[in-house]
Amino acid sequence: MELKTHAMPLLLSSEMIEEFSQLSTTLISDAMAGTGVMDYKIKSIKPGVKLAGTAFTVDTKEGSALAVIAAVALAQQGHILVISGKGEASNAVIGDMLVKTALKSGISGIVVDGLVRDVSVLRDMDMPLFAIGAVPSAAKKNGHGELNSPIVCGGISVKPGDLIVGDDDGVVVVPSHAMYDVLLAAKAKLASEEQRIQDIDNGLLVPEWLKKLL
């Protein structure tokens, strides 16, 4: 049994988190030209949930929950656990007891490229939780794992300290070095969409760019 740990990622500013929490994942995706979007199968276990925070990465090995248990113990308030479950389909890597502990620790959310269990209980908890699905069987607590190393989750590279945003459409990853540019682009996209909605309300049903093509 082996567990490797690396330096704790610095938390992103609360101002930056708040700015992104006001934006949809669709706007953020558009701002990044469609990059950074996790596999469509990773969805919130209940509708209407919003997720935004700093990535604390978890690499699981051999279907083991060891690294997840350690991450819940070590992550700080404001971190989001991003778990590379590698699409493991035989068991759940997290359940109600671990999620309850994470909630008490102040962890802001959990994203799992794998399965969870105890869904009926988890849906009553105030913890944003995104996963591929659910299964009754529990994970092993042996094996290997690694904390706060670069991982792949839902087909997307995630580094510790990256910005994670999730809503009903899915999860997007914003590299920490690109946050400001993405924020500006997403806000510009939002302004453009708001103008287009106003135009539609005013009866301008064909946008100018389309008129030029017709």
Rank of each mutant, 00 (worst) to 15 (best):
A7I: 11
P9W: 14
L11N: 04
L11F: 01
L11G: 04
L12S: 07
S14F: 08
E15D: 15
M16S: 13
I17W: 04
I17N: 06
E18F: 07
E19A: 11
F20D: 00
F20E: 00
F20K: 03
Q22P: 01
S24W: 06
T26H: 12
L27M: 07
M32D: 09
D39I: 03
K41Y: 07
I42S: 09
K46G: 02
G48P: 05
V49F: 05
K50M: 12
A52V: 09
A55H: 08
E62N: 15
E62L: 14
E62G: 05
G63D: 04
S64Y: 07
L66D: 08
A67T: 03
A70M: 04
A75R: 07
H79A: 01
H79Y: 00
I80N: 00
V82P: 00
K86P: 00
E88W: 10
N91D: 06
N91F: 01
A92D: 00
V93I: 12
G95L: 00
D96C: 07
D96Q: 11
L98N: 06
K100M: 13
A102K: 02
A102I: 00
K104L: 13
S105Y: 12
I107A: 13
S108V: 01
S108L: 03
D113M: 13
G114Q: 05
L115W: 03
V116M: 08
R117H: 15
V119G: 08
V121D: 15
V121L: 15
L122A: 13
M127R: 05
P128M: 03
P128N: 03
L129D: 12
I132Y: 06
V135K: 06
V135I: 15
V135N: 08
A138G: 02
K141R: 04
N142M: 10
H144R: 12
G145L: 04
P150F: 07
V152P: 00
I156Q: 15
I156M: 14
S157E: 15
V158M: 14
V158E: 11
D162L: 04
D162E: 05
D162N: 13
D162C: 08
V165I: 11
G166K: 06
D167R: 02
G170I: 13
V172K: 08
V174M: 06
P175E: 11
P175M: 12
H177W: 11
M179V: 14
Y180C: 04
V182P: 02
L183C: 12
L183W: 13
A186F: 10
A186R: 03
A186L: 06
K187A: 05
A188N: 14
K189T: 09
L190Y: 03
E193Q: 14
E194T: 09
Q198M: 10
I200T: 04
L204Q: 14
V206W: 03
P207E: 15
E208I: 06
W209V: 01
L214A: 14
